[in-house]
């Protein structure tokens, strides 16, 4: 049990001492995963909408592809992105490896399938005839899409929450493409791995508590947004 007490005390010390190394790590985690989920939402919500509502040949195959990539191991994604960005890789000229931008790219690949998949099933559950009704009230294609997404807002928001939850807590991809360089690309999850490696279990646990606490706060905020307008529900 002793390790837990040490960890709690250590977490408190880390957060309150104003340790110059703590806040940048938290900030890096939030910046990388926050921008990645924002990009994933921008890409994934429209694609999920199209996949959920359009009928075209190969749709089922595409859905299988999306569902499979929802469960892709972060290390594998990290490896692919690493190989693309490495000096001798096809995108090596970008000189992005071991930078936060590379981490964002890897996390976009991780979060986007989740956003697409969950959004697709959310909009597909909106009655098809509602689209007809919206069109019959004079909605243009864009207005129709916005109304459907608004109608499926809980599911669409859930897709963003799922995407964020997956990437804020993953370590495989960020450590491969970011390298977990202290003061440069270190995030909370790579800090845990590094401290475990050094045998500093107290500090590792402290980071774990901080990570869980922050994830919890963010999810409370997102869930609140998700439930806005629930007053209209039965």
């Amino acid at each position: 049990m002793k390790v837990y007490y040490i960890a709690i005390a250590e977490a408190w010390r880390l957060l309150t001492s104003g340790d110059a190394l703590v806040m940048p790590v938290i900030g890096m985690s939030l910046t990388v995963s926050g921008s990645a989920v924002a990009m994933a939402a921008l890409i994934g919500i429209p694609l999920g909408y199209m996949l959920g509502l359009s009928r075209f040949g190969g749709r089922a195959a595409l859905m299988v592809l999306v569902n499979t990539s929802m469960g892709f191991p972060p290390v594998v994604v990290g490896l692919f992105v690493y190989l693309a960005l490495t000096r001798w890789g096809p995108l090596g000229f970008l000189d992005m490896l071991f930078t936060p931008r590379a981490m964002v790219v890897a996390q976009v690949f991780l979060a986007t399938p989740l956003v697409i998949g969950v959004t697709a099933s959310a909009v597909a559950s909106v009655a098809r005839d509602l689209r007809l009704q919206l069109r019959a009230l004079g909605a243009s294609r864009l207005q129709e899409g916005l109304a459907i997404i608004l109608e499926a807002r809980r599911g669409v928001m859930a897709s963003v929450i799922a995407g964020f939850g997956a990437i804020i807590s993953e370590v495989g991809a960020v450590s491969i493409v970011g390298g977990g360089i202290e003061g440069k690309t270190e995030v909370m999850t790579t800090a845990i791995v590094a401290n475990v490696g050094r045998g500093d279990f107290g500090i590792a646990m402290a980071w774990a508590f901080i990570l869980i606490g922050i994830a919890l706060m963010i999810n409370v905020a997102l869930t609140t947004v998700q439930n806005l307008g629930s007053a209209y529900d039965r």
Partner: peptide, 28 residues
């Protein structure tokens, strides 16, 4: 198309107030 309006078998109302539903087409 906007000179035509429709009422279907099921009302298919949006998850919103009565006012927002009736005002939807006007907003568009």
């Amino acid at each position: 198309r906007r000179t035509i309006a429709a009422v279907f078998q099921k009302p298919y109302l949006l998850r919103a107030t009565v006012g927002a539903n009736v005002g939807y087409g006007l907003k568009l």
